[in-house]
Design a protein around this nucleic acid. Structure first.
Lengths: 227, 227, 227, 227
DNA sequence: GATGAATGAGTATTCATTCAT
DNA sequence: GATGAATGAATACTCATTCAT
């Protein structure tokens, strides 16, 4: 849908340009202000009218989805790098570190991950897509005896969420503080961390359930408004 | 702003009663629905009119602040228990676990901690009050050789924030999953966790700065509204 | 819900006053401009802010419903008068004329009757309420041999709709022209009008169906807008 | 504005083609969805861009006007058939039935007739063009003693409007119900219907006035919009 | 000339805050 | 002092119309 032929339809040129600008603006705005940011704000930052934003994206959700898809593509690349890691443990660390780095400065992305507004299916889709890749990483590491007993995929995901939650503190520093906090957590995943993780291990179904709707108060992040 | 004069006038009696009811209601409402909950909701739960809420608290922010102060009082109690722990490491764990448990069921509190509304001095106050107690805990543990080298107060605070971030997953279970995630992190704080924590340790001033406003885009959690 | 006790709650006084003003303003505005009229317009005409309109009525639909209920009450009264008419044919004419007079200047009411926005259940309810009364009127007239063979309730309703459709032409005149057009139609209902009405008579179920949803293009009158 | 010059330039060819397509599309779209349908919808159905629509027609109103003119041409043909009817009463019935049949399936046309957008001169033109033909029909019928005393052209027009108003109920049936409702009205026009129609007969000027703007609140059917 | 992208005022609804009763 | 009614700016989204390509 982007550029297969060098020059496709001339008219599309500015449309695509605006789409790009909108996505870039949205990335900035949502990263800074979270999902509550208005499309007016996004459009203004992109230097276009709101109408244009709504011409490119049917609604706020679709814009978020497009944005999210870009991030999921990034995650795919990360997963590939992680899978290609020379040794299993490195794969785990690659996945964790790079994913956290990706979400570190992005408040909107974190809100999407921590508390996806109810009914946003693209988050579920992403999970369905990436989940197996993480599973593989985990299995490989377990086979190599690199992971602590009882550690599962969902624990890695939670690790990402936990560190991400504090990851935008001090984003402007050369050595962002989150690496320090990451170090705090990652040790707990290693084979030499001690006994098996306490608590009943979550079955995949349970983990899915927890991630999707197991939060009290639901996920009213995208307000339903207007007529 | 409340008890400066030693003699309280009788009228103060039901005013205080209303204040108490409002705080209790607010605690419930914000815990369940997060900071987006309306003051009408709070007032209704308290069984008073909104006007009363605005007579007791200048605005939503002040109500939140008062609420937060109550939680800080809870934290004080926790700190006392932690300080009285039989051995230093237990003190650390007591502080962490109980603090996380406190926030686990409280969505509003978590939102407040992860993203304090800009300009609010909640966290400053809390730090001023609790910081020294945590410092003491940390020093005691270090003296006893129970803490990993390089671990500082701010690392404990971050630990709380990290685990809190995922603490509402599966709140309805008998054994809440957050204990599992806590186990993941806590190991990294123990003396036997490995070398010193990587990354420059944050000075108290830095930590303070980070926690308050060191995030790009600030923390627009409370919308500015009204006439 | 209005005034049972002479002075109930003092505060309610202005609220009720505003409610009345809003209903009066809405009656005017919707009568003149149809259902597309905005609540801003209604509020302005009532001399209050939009917020007040939304405090009294949950949304536009509820305001319309309240308005409509008033009209249905009027219709009830009309039906009572019609049922009490000295002779059956007079009852029919009373129903028709007074109902048409009621809707004559009211564009909104006609839109509601001719093309009720999909999903507006209060129109159905009104039909369910008034239908039997019309049936009775018709049966009584048939028993007295006053009605043309084959004439059914739905034919009376259609008569009202037909004449109403042109009834606001020349509303300002002393003798409104619609009486002339009514005279054109009413003869067709009398026993001496000729043979039975042509066309398959509609069963009650069919009539209901036709009135409710049997229109191509659906009834998008209340636009769904906004978030 | 179209064919003043006898020689059409070749470029005009596809322009005319587009105009035709737009009108055809508009006829369909407005017939189905009413006047609220968007020009984007029309253009899409016509297979052209909106810009083209705006090149052919200054605005939505003008497109509607052009459309209406086409219908008036249809009415011309109907009038010719009616005038050629074997006997006067048949002429009247032909006019009425065929006109109603024309509007029966056309929601937009009905909206236009019942509530012409303010300031549009559609109806004036139509009246100017068709009025005399209807007059002739009426006179012929009166001369033959076929029409009820006092019945005038405007009464026939009103008859059309009245029946049209309910003509879309049950459009999907083999025998559309409107014929039944038409039967209800048409009897009132016949010579044997009884005495002269009550009410002052409308003078042509009055009728014209009534049809054009004689409704309180005017006919805001097309919203004023745009930059 | 055609295209469809851009625009922005307009619409329904919410909610923090103020104020008359 | 308490109450809850009133306010209006803010928000997501639509669509008639204009304009660059």
């Amino acid at each position: 849908m982007t550029e297969n032929a060098p020059t496709e339809k001339p008219l599309r040129r500015d449309a695509e340009e605006n789409r790009r600008r909108l996505l870039a603006a949205a990335a900035e705005v949502f990263a800074e202000a979270g999902l509550d940011a208005t499309l007016d704000e996004v459009a203004a930052r992109a230097g276009v009218g709101v109408g244009t934003a709504y011409r490119r994206f049917a609604n706020k959700e679709e814009l978020l989805e497009a944005l999210f898809r870009e991030r999921v593509a990034d995650l795919d690349a990360i997963m590939d790098r992680a899978a290609a890691a020379a040794e299993p443990w490195l794969g785990i660390v690659t996945y964790l570190e790079e994913t956290i780095a990706l979400t570190a400065g992005d408040r909107g992305l974190r809100e999407l991950m921590l508390r996806p507004p109810q009914g946003l299916e693209f988050v579920d889709e992403a999970r369905a897509r990436l989940g197996p890749k993480i599973d593989e990483l985990v299995e490989r590491a377990h086979r190599a005896g690199a992971l602590r007993a009882g550690v599962e995929s969902s624990d890695l995901v939670m690790t990402v969420l936990m560190v991400s939650a504090v990851a935008d503190y001090g984003q402007d520093r050369a050595e962002p503080p989150w690496r320090r906090f990451f170090a705090l957590v990652v040790g707990g995943l290693r084979a030499d961390a001690g006994g098996a993780l306490p608590g009943a291990a979550l079955s995949p179904a349970e983990a899915d359930e927890l991630l999707r709707a197991g939060r009290p108060g639901g996920g009213r992040v995208l307000r339903r408004r207007g007529p």
